[in-house]
Amino acid sequence: MFQSLGKYILLLRLSFKKPEKFSVYWGEVMREMVSVGIGSLGIISIISLFIGAATTIQVAFQLSSPLVPRSIAGSISRDSNILEFSPTISSLVLAGRVGSNFASNIGTMRVTEQIDALEIMGVNAPGYLISPKILASITMIPLLVIISICLGITGGYIACLITGTITPADYLMGVNDGFDGLTVRVALVKAFVFGFIIASICSYQGFYTKGGALEVGQSATAGVVYSCVWILFADLMITSLML
């Protein structure tokens, strides 16, 4: 365990070593940002809309007592989406989509000796392959989480229009009532940390792949599993510290 942790820390140090040609690395960062951000926008949008709608309907069902104001369902749905559903569930989904892609790409380069060729040419392979992925993830995943929050709240509004469980006016009143900016800050901190976890762990798994195509698949699976576990652990720690 300690040996793996040492290799992980060393890989991160090499990844953020000063690049020889910044322009080359900048191009890789832009390419990864497009892949992580634009490539994941569709699945994040669909998930956020449906989770927001389902959350609102379930909250309205549980708070069906005449003694409870109907608008409170909007407040609970808003805070649930901001604090937990949008950052955590979106990151778990991105660990499967983005993380497996990172691990398989780097793992394929390792088993086909492309990384060895980069090192022979004097290129800092971790910096060239891993740092753009980390920078893209910690930049784009918070943006995706912001979009997810907006779409989650929109999904709740659409559910009110379609099902009539709560009037849209009551829902919007609840969304606007008692809003605390701390919840958004917590969500963005979570998104930043989760993005780093996904990119670094999956890249680590891919970079130290040994064998062939079967081992590349195993590395991608291991990267996703470890990322999900650490995301849940980090979620608990950040929530405990900031709330």
Rank of each mutant, 00 (worst) to 15 (best):
G152K: 00
T221F: 05
V68K: 04
G6F: 11
F194I: 14
G122H: 15
A222Y: 06
D235I: 10
V145A: 11
S40K: 14
F179N: 02
L151W: 02
L10H: 03
V225I: 10
Y128A: 03
S137A: 15
L135Q: 04
T183N: 07
L214C: 05
W26M: 12
V145S: 13
F22V: 01
D116G: 13
K190Q: 12
K210G: 09
T183Q: 05
V36I: 08
C150E: 14
I130W: 00
A73D: 11
Y8T: 06
C160M: 08
E119W: 13
L143D: 15
A169S: 10
I46N: 09
A73V: 15
S35T: 06
M33I: 09
E20Y: 10
P69R: 03
G107K: 05
D177S: 13
G152L: 07
T183C: 07
F207P: 03
I147S: 11
V186E: 12
S4H: 10
A187S: 13
I72L: 12
G127L: 02
R70C: 00
P69A: 06
S91E: 09
I57V: 14
I51K: 07
L14H: 15
I130P: 04
D79T: 03
I51S: 05
S77T: 15
T183W: 00
G122D: 15
R97F: 11
A234L: 10
F22P: 00
A54H: 04
M140C: 14
D180H: 07
A222V: 02
F192K: 13
A125W: 04
M1R: 02
G212L: 11
M109H: 11
R97P: 06
M30E: 08
T154A: 02
L214H: 02
Y171P: 09
P69S: 07
G217A: 09
L182H: 13
P66H: 12
S240M: 07
R78G: 05
L243V: 01
G74E: 09
N124R: 12
L161P: 02
S65F: 10
L63H: 13
A117I: 04
I72C: 03
E32Q: 11
A73T: 14
I47K: 00
V29W: 01
